[in-house]
Nucleic acid binder design. Structure first.
Lengths: 341, 341
DNA sequence: TCCCCGTCTGACACCGGTGTCATAATGTCG
DNA sequence: CGACATTATGACACCGGTGTCAGACGGGGA
């Protein structure tokens, strides 16, 4: 046998037509059980595998999803945010469980997207993953909507289409942090992150945090807010700049774990003890959080569930089925460790 | 315009034949520059994208690679080894740079592989990633070789086919650790990992380590070796069992960072100070290593380079070009941090 | 003028499946 | 025994491109 076997080869050896082979192998009820057995047997012997390209072409669907991962443009080239990698893991699993393949692609937000996976029929739908510039996204979303591409995204909201988004209840997560710090009596808080509309997730965390503090008579002074993107280095620098300006606080909320870890480094370098002098809380619950010094209190986002929801919602979208919007906002959970005891 | 545009639509609007459209869009020198401009313009206007399924089917190649990630079967369901995720990142980038798409799939070693990506023409080649049971792999490798599937793998050697493997010089990495500990005067060493043939990478690290110690008159006592797989928990348990047996040592080499991190936890719980009482060194240089307490000395594997090599070698294999075996063994680098000062 | 050649284009078979339709074989009922 | 439903199968068009081949066209040389 030269080259790969085709369904015609199977048909030949099984003494049936090619049509019957196709039907038999896909479990059509139209074919006789005895015939099917014969076909399956021959196919196994010849190590026959259905050609996905031919099958996809004819069936006009690919049983494949694509993940587009947008990195923070300024983040380190080599290291990808562990939070998204963890998400990627659960998406992969959820995909496999649904019998779909998964294409993965990293994009830099600066570039134009290579988001033609759907248009070129390589994927039936697309999952968008990333913190990213909110304003920048909307125009891309419009292009996707226009070309009738099926997609869902994590975090960022698509205007007027809530069914396309799965996200953590960031605002509530911020509130949980506020409550925790209030219980500890640490209401003189700093915030490292981004309160602008450029980062809807970070600002939601901040707003939930600030509002809950306010209901307890505390508030976050403008001076105690420093801007950072989600890297350790950025968190470190932002915190250092606060300290350099001689700004005092007894608690610090980092908009992500990486930021909080960088903040801890800055605090410790300045001779401040965590949590004795400053309680620190992060957001994400990366695997690192357990291992840093001191172990980091944080708000856990359930990436397993998130990945499952993203896949499930996307598949519903593709099948033109109803998507449950309400359940796509995932509950955050406060994990208290030593950094805020 | 209903549905997606096809090359026939473009042909119609550009007033040429479908053949010419195909040629024009793929830059064939046969088509007149003026004609090409017209075709390209129409294609842009109609937002036309070549159908990959049709193209792949006809061309009998997919411009796609697949990564199969094998997890340690006993490892935690939700968390994937960060080392491989980091590798995945660099593979993705290398793929994109070469103009290939990337399919990602997680496999449990226990299950039969769904490695039919190549047979079903979904991918031109496969990258195998994972620590795994060496013996178990050889039979799978044979099956891949038999079906003439193009593949490369990380770490594990395919018998008699060195060109299919990219790996870190684990033995040399172990030797670097030995030298470092000798310099510190810490030659009473424990090893946590796996010295059996089941884990070729771990045992190579151990052998390189033990041999170098021997040339300096030291050696690793059998009693000071404990078996662990590459998880924090496993490293913790293995170390605890050593301590429970009242075994003393002033240095500990963990076969991976996760193991070393677990070991540190066990040591600290037992009241031993790191590095004052025991110097600890790991292997991998995960992002975590910098952040744990104390920051972990470790052997860095260059995952960026590794990913590039895997992709490059696989593409050479597919193109039936020579593969440079020698350069596929990557040099490890010792990173000294506080855990072994 | 005729022939040849280079340039450019169109017609057409083909990749390997899937879905539809026609039909043969068998059974069922009045 | 004929009309008709049921079951199982084969023939064939089709998905949307790619590669081959034949041919149209214009120019240059004899």
């Amino acid at each position: 046998m030269k080259g790969k076997a085709t369904s015609f080869d199977i048909a030949h050896y099984a003494g049936v037509s090619q049509s019957t082979v196709s039907r038999a192998l896909r479990g059509s009820p139209l074919v006789n059980e005895e015939t099917r057995r014969r076909v399956v047997e021959v196919a196994r012997k010849l190590n026959y595998k259905v050609d996905k390209n031919a099958s996809n072409l004819r069936a006009q669907q690919s049983s494949t999803l694509a993940v587009l991962l947008f990195e923070d443009p300024t983040s380190d080239e080599s290291q990808i945010n562990p939070f998204f990698l963890s998400m990627l893991g659960s998406i992969t699993r959820a995909c496999a469980k649904a019998g779909y393949d998964l294409l993965v692609s990293f994009q830099s937000s600066s570039n134009d997207w290579h988001a033609d996976y759907a248009e070129s029929h390589r994927a039936d739908g697309i999952i968008l993953l990333g913190y990213g510039d909110y304003m920048d996204y909307q125009s891309k979303f419009e292009r996707l909507l226009e070309s009738d591409t099926k997609f869902v995204c994590w975090g960022a909201n698509v205007e007027g289409r809530p069914e396309l988004t799965v996200s953590c209840d960031n605002s509530r997560g911020g509130a949980l942090v506020a409550e925790h710090l209030i219980e500890l009596g640490r209401t003189d808080c700093a915030f490292i992150g981004d309160t602008s509309h450029h980062s809807p997730e970070f600002s939601a965390r901040f707003n939930g945090f600030a509002e809950r503090l306010k209901t307890h008579g505390a508030h976050v002074s403008e001076r105690k807010i420093a801007t950072a993107i989600s890297t350790e280095e950025s968190g470190y620098q932002a915190t250092k700049s606060l300290l350099a300006n001689n700004i005092k606080f007894n608690a610090l909320f980092g908009a992500s774990d990486l930021i909080a870890i960088g903040a801890i480094r800055a605090l410790q370098e300045a001779g401040l003890r965590v949590p004795h002098d400053v309680s620190v809380v992060g957001f994400d619950d990366l695997a690192v959080a357990r291992f840093c010094t001191p172990p980091l209190s944080t708000v856990q986002q359930n990436t397993t569930l998130a990945g499952q929801m993203l896949v499930a919602n996307l598949l519903n979208l593709i099948a033109k089925q109803e998507v449950d919007v309400a359940s796509s906002v995932l509950p955050p959970q406060l994990i208290v460790r030593q950094s805020s005891k």
